[in-house]
Design a protein around this nucleic acid. Structure first.
Lengths: 184, 184
DNA sequence: ACCTGAACACCGTTCAAGT
DNA sequence: ACCTGAACACCGTTCAAGT
């Protein structure tokens, strides 16, 4: 006997959309399978046809955020591109402090992660870094930028005002520029 | 009417001890108020006399881990001290990947955080860094070290083997040494 | 002061059944 | 294929009561 085809009521897209909206409105802690389902006016169990489980739901959310990260215009000077990337990461972390931390908990091999990495690779190439050192440099740079944005949004830097943190990054930028000049 | 004094059955110390043991054996996700209470053979509600709530319990756990972080012998060369600190952070993150992430979610003004920061300050002083730059340098360095350890233990670096990551850190060390020489 | 039992308002997920 | 209802085994926390 053939199973009856049925019009899908919701898609994975819609599930992630609802997850994002919920996280934006009430924070990540309010994101539960049941709450997402309620927002879609559907039974909790219905979600399991579109995501494997809650972890997969959260993974999908993080990947979505990463994909929406603004990538700087490649025609800009390389150091400005890095600075803009750092700024975008800070803005993303500020909007989603909890979800941002999950960047540290998944392999950086998703399309969204690749996209961001390529942007850093390009900047480093234009900075004149030797090709064989670029992946390593990218790892160090991204780790610092993500760690900084996570510290700021997570509250680790709560004692420091925005101005001091801006100064930290400006100074880091000059140190990095000097280091890159030393390598080249 | 006087309330009757009563022999306390458990202390905050014991609660945190049980929390740590549970986290070590079954991971942070297994740490619940109810599970910690069960391990102490006590009702869940009894814990609330020793910790404000679950967040406070987790905070206590993180602070405990931080306090146990080995501080390098001050008589060692400054760069070796920094390298040892980085190694200790990596080991701590490997043992408690989830709890480690919580370092990014609380202000770094607890006794444990101060203790670690002072160790970095000392190393930077011995490296000859100008006093007025030391707090800023510490922020950059700690952010990188914590970000790196969190990336490694959290799985962000899952595609890279231990050897590559050791190489990353060795190289970072030489860049930092060069940058410090430039500042001095 | 410290511990308890019962209760409230939630969770994620499995399963068998419906269309 | 996709959605549902009922159920299972959990949560954190409040409250009133006991000693």
């Amino acid at each position: 006997v053939q199973p009856l085809p049925r019009q899908p009521r919701i898609s994975r897209e819609q599930v992630l959309e609802a997850t994002l909206a919920l996280a934006e409105e009430r924070g990540l802690e309010a994101v539960s399978m049941r709450a997402v389902a309620a927002r879609l006016e559907v039974t909790p169990m219905s979600l399991y046809h579109h995501v494997r489980n809650k972890q997969d739901l959260l993974d999908g959310l993080v990947e979505r955020l990463l994909t929406e990260l603004p990538i700087p215009d490649p025609s800009l000077p390389w150091d400005q591109r890095l600075a803009e990337l750092a700024g975008s990461l800070r803005a993303l972390a500020a909007r989603h402090p909890d979800a941002f931390l999950m960047l540290l908990r998944r392999p950086a091999d998703t399309p969204g992660a690749l996209r961001a990495r390529e942007a850093v690779y390009g900047a480093l190439r234009d900075a004149g870094a030797p090709a064989e050192l670029i992946p390593r440099l990218e790892r160090l740079l991204s780790t610092f930028m993500i760690g900084f944005a996570a510290s700021e949004s997570g509250g680790r830097f709560a004692l420091h005002d925005r101005e001091a943190l801006d100064g930290d990054l400006d100074w880091a930028r000059s140190l990095i520029t000097a280091a890159l000049a030393g390598i080249r």
